[in-house]
Design a protein around this nucleic acid. Structure first.
Length: 454
RNA sequence: UCCUCGGUAGCUCAAUGGCAGAGCGCCCGGCUGUUAACCGGGUGGUUGCAGGUUCGAGUCCUGCCCGAGGAGCCA
């Protein structure tokens, strides 16, 4: 008798099969009883009819509790009344283990409770769908890069210094000296790109920032490609091709999961190259225009309608040189139905390694990619400084210890070339594609301010 | 670190300063096509912690703890 996975039941209509799984839920109407059995690939309804099964099989229903592990044998049949279209006419049940009172009942729960039970929450329909999409996002990204001449190079996680020197790092003891959990593999990828041309790393990164928003984790996964002999234009072209491919692959392979999440699929279908490009200068003008218009409208509306809706966060007017805040990014991304590049930020708003635009030294050749629907920055990237003297000067301007960066400066001593790269945040990308309210659901076991367990 | 909101049964929530309640879960019973099934009965409380005001505090005041949303910073 074949052991079959729920997602393949359609191939076994009329046959007697075995499903190995867990009881998701059960319902009864007296002499007919229903078991919802999940096996990791899907959920199937198993039907017990009193006059059609052995008494001990029929009564097994009574001892089965939610999430008990169970092996069910029965005949597969198509039935429009069954969720998923197929059901199992049960002939035998083997209870593997009777679960104790399962904490997550088929009702609503608060986020703290669910996060405390994350190890069990993973079994629920929504969380199951999200992590399958995450798996596809990672696989699609790696497939695209592998097919376009990129080599996977793993970056270290324990590092002696900050990469960017700005954000707070997690400190740890490394024998006799202090070490830090990496915040980016980029510097190492620059070294690897000089060896292999096009490379990428994929792994966890750590930020000890006390950020408490729907877009932040203290441990998150980042995909960081780096390309020798590439400029900002090439960098953006690769980004839009890669992101579009990821979205299209999810639409192709994980449509069912998107439906479980009730994601608006038409919004994702629009994601294809090219993405709009907005200079920082134009972005500031656009944002300030929207804010001024809103202020004007707000003053009028305030008189008659005290309870007017505020969907977008409150944003302050920008002055040239300010970095874009989250509310500004939301204003920008809401103007487009595709991700949008904002490029050429002021030098002072960006990291030390960003290459100045030769035509306008007050801006750097960088670009952030903002996801639609207010999901914020999913990519940050740009062209790196390839001139030795300028890089050394920038390190000093930023107060960074040049000794620690000698190896990085070596890359500009020995065969320096124009090069560019970017970092793609996996959780933000998954949250956007899935339409999640918070990135904490886009990773199996989130690490947040105030959450280290489970 | 700052701003806003919250903490009552295992869970989600209700309760003018005046007898702490409902739904779900769980237990018992009923139902031959259920879809978070439904119906009847039962079970379930240190109202986050410590003080204070009051005849009387879940409710008002002070401090603390915890959580959520947002800001800054970033992917």
């Amino acid at each position: 008798m074949p052991v079959v996975r729920v997602d393949q039941l359609g191939d076994y209509v009329g046959e007697e099969v075995v499903i190995q799984g867990w009881l998701y839920n059960k319902r009864s109407s007296g002499k007919i009883r229903f078991l919802e059995v999940r096996d990791g690939t899907g959920i199937v309804q198993a039907v017990l009819i009193k006059n059609a099964v052995a008494p001990e099989v029929f009564s097994a229903y009574d001892s089965l509790t939610q999430e008990s592990s169970v092996i069910v044998q029965g005949q597969v049949r198509a039935d429009p009344r069954a969720p998923g279209g197929y059901e199992l006419g049960v002939s035998g049940i083997r209870i593997v283990q009777v679960a104790e009172d399962y904490p997550i009942t088929p009702k609503e729960h608060g986020i703290e409770f669910l996060m405390d039970h994350r190890h069990l929450w993973l079994r629920s329909r929504r969380q199951h769908a999200i992590l399958r999409i995450r798996s596809e996002v990672v696989k699609a990204a790696r497939d695209w890069l592998d097919d376009h001449g990129f080599i996977l190079i793993d970056a270290p996680i324990l590092t002696p210094t900050a990469v960017e020197g700005t954000t707070t790092l997690f400190e740890t003891q490394y024998f006799d000296e202090k070490a830090y959990l990496t915040q980016s593999g980029q510097l190492y990828m620059e070294a690897a790109a000089m060896a292999h041309g096009r490379v990428y790393c994929f792994g966890p990164t750590f930020r000890a920032e006390k950020s408490k928003t729907r877009r932040h984790l203290t441990e998150f996964w980042m995909l960081e490609p780096e390309m020798a002999y590439a400029d900002l234009e090439e960098d953006m072209r690769v980004q839009e091709e890669l992101v579009s491919y990821i979205v299209q692959r999810v639409l192709e392979k994980r449509r069912r999961e998107l439906e479980v999440l009730e994601r608006e699929i038409s919004r994702l279908e629009k994601i294809s190259p090219p993405f709009p490009r907005l200079s920082y200068d134009d972005a500031v003008e656009l944002v300030n225009g929207v804010i001024r218009a809103r202020q004007a409208a707000g003053e009028e509306a305030a008189e008659g309608a005290p309870g007017r809706e505020e969907r977008e966060p409150v944003a302050e007017l920008l002055e040239w040189g300010d970095d874009l805040g989250a509310p500004h990014e939301t204003i920008i991304s809401n103007q487009y139905d595709k991700p949008v590049f904002v490029h050429r930020y002021p030098v002072q708003a960006k990291a030390f390694y960003m290459k100045p635009d030769p035509e306008r030294p007050e801006v750097v050749l960088c670009a952030d990619l903002l996801a639609p629907e207010g999901y914020g920055e999913i990519i940050g990237g740009g062209q790196r400084i390839d001139d030795y003297d300028l890089l050394r000067q920038r390190l000093m301007e930023h107060g960074l210890p040049t000794e620690a960066y000698e190896w990085y400066l070596d890359l500009r001593r020995y065969g320096s070339v124009p090069h560019a790269g970017f970092g793609l945040g996996i959780e933000r990308t998954v949250a956007w594609i899935c339409g999640l309210p918070h990135v904490r659901e886009a990773v199996p076991f989130p690490r947040l301010l105030n959450r280290l367990r489970p």
